[in-house]
Design a protein around this nucleic acid. Structure first.
Lengths: 164, 164
DNA sequence: GTTCTTGCAAACCCTTTGCACGTCT
DNA sequence: AGACGTGCAAAGGGTTTGCAAGAAC
């Protein structure tokens, strides 16, 4: 968790406009969830954010965290992922625009990559069916091939995720 | 559910080899799950398969269905999807090779498409990081644009997750 | 005969919900 | 004031697990 060059005020404005458009209320809780979520420079779960907030000064309920994360996802401030089996993870959309995930199916090691060709491809495929593409989610599953490497990566992938 | 030109014997052989390689046992239940799963020409859930089997002559437990579906996914006979929020869905990998999904984020309407460029792209990206691509999962989220159509299509409403 | 698998039900975990209280407009 | 949001705990639903009985090897 660290500060980056995310424009928090712009996100707040974006959220405010979304809430107004949907006739939802401007509550302190909702904006605190946004602020604290924006401190993560990595994927995080709803429960992680809940614990983080409640152990650092923001008393808030799980229900509110979940519901606000849902709102933030609706207005594209957050992106929600459902990787294998576990709980859903979120990340700031602005954190690393248009990245996708390369995942070792044997050890779970995950690499974030950016591939500009995908944007054009997503648009073209949607157009092919008369739709307008909004976003996409791509995971490539691979194997390390080298089992020693795979094992080493397994350890690091579960302990260090604090930096991208 | 209907029969297609799936080579069930080849799948059984593939499964047998996988079990042998992993030192797992050849049980009747495992092969019955494979046979019955292969009858679906669409996505299905573990529970659907469980109910289907138990209402048509194959008495089997949920635990076995779940565990066998996991094995069949491990050996690439099935593909497992985790679309929005609900339960996981499976489908035969051989059913429609290398297809991906185009989903209307407003009404949930889903189109299966095939795009051969993606295969090359998945391989190239994995290679870029020294890995060997096995498969991928791509969802493109779009909007219908036409609200009338979208509303008609709306049977279940939900927010868009980016899932595996 | 030993080990793995199955079946059953209960446990589990993440997420959602119902209701009373509090807050926003 | 009225409607909506929050907090709490309990319910919910898909999936996994523990243990005894049964099959595979």
């Amino acid at each position: 968790m660290k500060q980056r060059q995310i424009d928090i005020e712009q996100l707040q404005e974006q959220f405010r406009q979304f809430l107004r458009r949907k006739m939802y209320r401007n509550t302190q809780e909702r904006f605190r969830v946004l602020e604290r979520a924006a401190e993560f420079d990595r994927h995080f779960t709803a429960d992680e954010l809940y614990v983080y907030m409640n152990t650092s000064g923001d008393k808030i309920s799980r229900a509110t965290v979940y519901s606000t994360l849902d709102l933030l996802t609706q207005c594209n401030i957050l992106v929600k992922h459902r990787f294998q089996g576990d709980s859903a993870t979120y990340e700031l959309a602005a954190r690393k625009p248009n990245h996708d995930h390369l995942i070792c199916r044997d050890c779970g090691y995950m690499i974030e990559f950016q591939e500009s060709a995908l944007l054009a491809l997503q648009d073209e495929i949607a157009r092919r069916y008369g739709l307008q593409a909004v976003s996409h989610s791509l995971q490539i599953f691979a194997s390390c091939g080298d089992s020693a490497t795979c094992q080493r990566r397994r350890e690091s992938s579960f302990t260090t995720d604090h930096d991208t």
